[in-house]
Design a protein around this nucleic acid. Structure first.
Lengths: 363, 363
DNA sequence: TAGTCCGGGACACTTGGTGTCCCTGGTAAT
DNA sequence: ATTACCAGGGACACCAAGTGTCCCGGACTA
């Protein structure tokens, strides 16, 4: 019963938060800033403006505006000896602590991941795709927003297949940013369901955004000679040229075994893969935990070198089961933005914790 | 059990809202504006910018900024034939409907009350003082904020006693607005507990805000001759002069019978009061439902005429049981701002509904 | 007493929001 | 088919609010 309460409880607050995230998206950032400010004041009180500004890495004037507001709502008290929290402000802080994780935990997680994985930018959304459906929705929403953010006129944007990328397509809307854009599938068929294939998604992306698309018609599981002959095909080589100069790339990261099964590898092949230590997959490459390529799908399309040359690489993967896969792909160092969910993020942090000695508590 | 869920649920969302109201107070207004905008679009779709701007009483440009945002988050869709809600936007609207009452209902209530009671400005806060303790806290918080808002240097501010005004005192903080201000009790002792008397509160208000205060030392229950002689006292007449020119007045409104009981009226006197139809009390005056004065405490202090001459009258009363009392005092037409809570507000609206014929559904 | 902190005031500057206009394109009615 | 109207989008000048920066009077401390 208490579980029922918790779920109901969570869901209602979550839904309020969801609404606010859609209607007033920067709310959380503002709240976070004010919260940090209050906490700093509590910690340093009584403290002066200048010292505080330095502590919070901001300018004196901008801090002053915030302080004036907080003073007006009676959350802090200013006096000639410095600023301090009022009773009410302290109350507020303690009330927030119980919610801080849900409100801000994700950005903390994101910063942790940026450090642990050596990735420029990590975005963590709420939820866990392994557990709940709306986790994938949220990931799709944020992914779509970022794609729009980075897209520029006449760009070539390469995308891969997979259910995560499909989720993005549901949240795309037309925008002038997509004018003249061409969506190009990073790979031909990879033996998956058609609605999750890169070709299909490229056309959906184009339809939703009002952009153009190209298709890469190559069967999966090619023999080496077939690869050569297909490369000669004009239709194919043209697309490969486009992929080579794609400026933005959006792709999913898969769990090695799960992907292999989905692509109907034989049991023998799968056991070979696991023997090689494959844990992650992206663009048809399979990586081990060290990030080394241990296997490559026998087909043609975008190469890791192409990916490394792109300006923007949006990597999407969510769900705690994807933790190791994400970690293996992060080693490729061809990644500018990782978009993941809380479940995967916590699992990754957990992996790192486990890897260290138990006494390594700090940092 | 479902009740338990509801309460838990409510409280958690409420606490999030409370936090946001303290940390980002204008958030709700922004949400409300966007919500109205979305609803208008849904209602009028497909609709153009100019038509919409006219409908929403705003300029074209400012609406355009909002529309651009909503378009970017994918909540609305813009096309050459006009704007319309996307699937996601419709989803959001329906999600919000279940919460709209809690989020915005109060301002709607406030507008209704302004019309029904013919009061310039009504503010409705969440909760019901009769039911929950935090209702009074909220009322006090808002009351304190409004007092600070209206206070000006060297003002004379008259206040009365009562638990509601006492609640205000707990949320007062020093501010330059209160420089040179004098807090003056509107009445001497009225036979209540000392911590709720106007004298006590005046001193607390002064202490909390860093202002000055005066005291009005007159016993309650004076005979007519004692009144005359006291009026002659210099200490007393001086305070009465101050009261006469008080620019801001903050007072509570009481239920007639409850106040009489608290002031230890005899059963006979109380039944006389009820026979006279007394329902409301303020400043020691007792009013019937029509707003006529049916009884007056035999003591001296601020008069209704003084109140009518004030620039700002902040009337506070909360709890559904206060509905009739608030309505009776509203008839005095010496009121600029009424601060009440959801419970009282809904009860008042209910009273008006009941008073009409059942077929009077519109308006 | 001198130095160093405090908050608050002042002021110029810049940026972003805003009012206003026009343009092109699509739709619908003639 | 043509025309007239309304759609969204672009442009641009303008104003105000936010911002960087400096200084001042006061209080505490060494």
């Amino acid at each position: 019963m208490s579980l029922v309460i918790l779920i109901e409880d969570e869901s209602r607050m979550r839904s309020l938060l969801d609404i606010q995230k859609q209607l007033v998206p920067d709310l959380i950032h503002i709240m976070r800033k004010r919260y940090d400010l209050m906490q700093s004041i509590r910690y340093l009180q009584p403290v002066g403006r200048r010292a505080l500004a330095q502590n919070l890495q901001t300018t004196e004037r901008i801090l002053r505006a915030e302080v004036d507001l907080l003073k007006d709502w009676g959350l802090i008290h200013v006096s000639p000896i410095g600023m301090s929290c009022t009773e009410e402000g302290l109350q507020l802080l303690s009330n927030m602590e119980s919610m801080a994780d849900e409100l801000f935990g994700f950005s903390d997680l994101a910063i942790q991941l940026e450090r642990l994985l050596h990735i420029n930018k990590v975005i963590v959304v709420a939820g866990d795709m392994d557990v709940s459906e709306w986790g994938k929705k949220e990931l799709g929403r944020v992914g779509a927003a970022l794609l729009k953010l980075h897209a520029e006129e006449d760009d070539v944007i390469a995308i891969t297949g997979g259910s995560t990328i499909a989720a993005v397509s549901e949240h795309l809307t037309p925008s002038p940013h997509f004018r003249g854009v061409q969506f190009v599938p990073g790979r031909g068929g990879l033996g998956e369901k058609v609605e999750l294939q890169a070709n299909t998604l490229a056309s959906i992306f184009a339809a939703k955004t009002g952009a153009q698309y190209r298709l890469l018609h190559v069967p999966d599981r090619l023999g080496p000679d077939a690869v050569q002959s297909l490369m000669g095909e004009e239709q194919v080589s043209e697309v490969l040229q486009l992929l080579k100069r794609s400026r933005v790339i959006m792709h999913g990261i898969g769990d090695a075994v799960a992907m292999a099964k989905r692509r109907k590898y034989t049991d023998l092949e799968i056991s070979e893969l696991t023997e090689l230590g494959a844990v992650g997959e992206a663009f048809g490459y399979y990586f081990n935990a060290a990030g080394e390529i241990v296997h490559r799908m026998p087909t043609i399309g975008i190469t890791l070198d192409n990916v490394r040359q792109a300006d923007v690489v949006l990597s999407l993967a969510g769900g705690s089961s994807k933790a190791k896969a994400i970690m293996s792909f992060a080693k490729q160092s061809c990644q500018t933005v990782l978009i993941t969910d809380e479940g995967a993020a916590r699992a990754i942090v957990g992996q790192f914790r486990q890897a260290r000695h138990p006494d390594a508590q700090l940092l």
